[in-house]
Simulated assay, not measured.
Amino acid sequence: MTRRTSNAFNPFDSFYLGLDMWRIGVESQAVIAMRTLGMIGLWSIRPQEMTRMVSEKPEAAFAAWQAASLAMMRGAGLEAVTRAALRPVGRRTGSNMRRLARMGPGICG
């Protein structure tokens, strides 16, 4: 959400980290809802969506682990490591939500 360039203490770091986690949670639930509606034919989704929802999990987990590991090796603090791990996950949830929302509701046949 915000980018810091210094290592100075910021009392709002935890607040912004919480907002990022909340945003990822809301986006995840929206993606789950749209995919579920797509499975029952009430949301227009591509046939590849079911494969995509399974294959993206390990990729996102690896990207999060890699980002957190790099942040730890650089000596970052706990909040910076957590933020680094959340960044790739947040990019995926955001892009999935926007992509599925563009497809829109519709009866699939």
Rank of each mutant, 00 (worst) to 15 (best):
A71Q: 00
Y16L: 00
F15V: 12
F62N: 01
R3C: 03
A84V: 11
R102M: 05
G90E: 00
L86D: 04
I45R: 04
E56R: 11
T82W: 00
A84Y: 07
R74S: 14
M97S: 11
A67I: 07
S14H: 14
P105N: 07
L86E: 08
L17D: 05
M39L: 15
T5C: 11
V26Y: 09
G106F: 04
P105S: 11
L78E: 11
A67K: 08
S6L: 14
M21Y: 13
G106M: 01
A68V: 03
V31F: 02
G75P: 07
A84K: 02
E79Q: 12
R46H: 14
V54D: 06
Q66L: 01
I32W: 08
A67E: 07
F15R: 04
F9L: 12
V89K: 06
A63G: 02
P88M: 04
G106Q: 02
R52M: 13
L17P: 09
E27Q: 13
R83A: 12
C108A: 09
A60P: 00
A61T: 13
G90R: 01
R74N: 15
G109K: 05
T51K: 10
F12N: 06
V54H: 10
A101V: 09
P58L: 00
R35T: 11
R4S: 11
K57R: 14
N10V: 10
I40C: 06
V89G: 01
G25P: 07
Y16T: 00
S28K: 14
M97L: 08
R91C: 00
A63F: 00
G104I: 07
L86S: 08
R92L: 14
S6W: 14
G41W: 14
A71P: 02
E79P: 00
A67P: 08
M1L: 03
Y16S: 00
V54Y: 08
R98I: 15
N96C: 05
A68S: 09
T36D: 09
T5A: 13
W22E: 04
R4E: 07
N10P: 01
G18T: 01
A85F: 02
V54E: 05
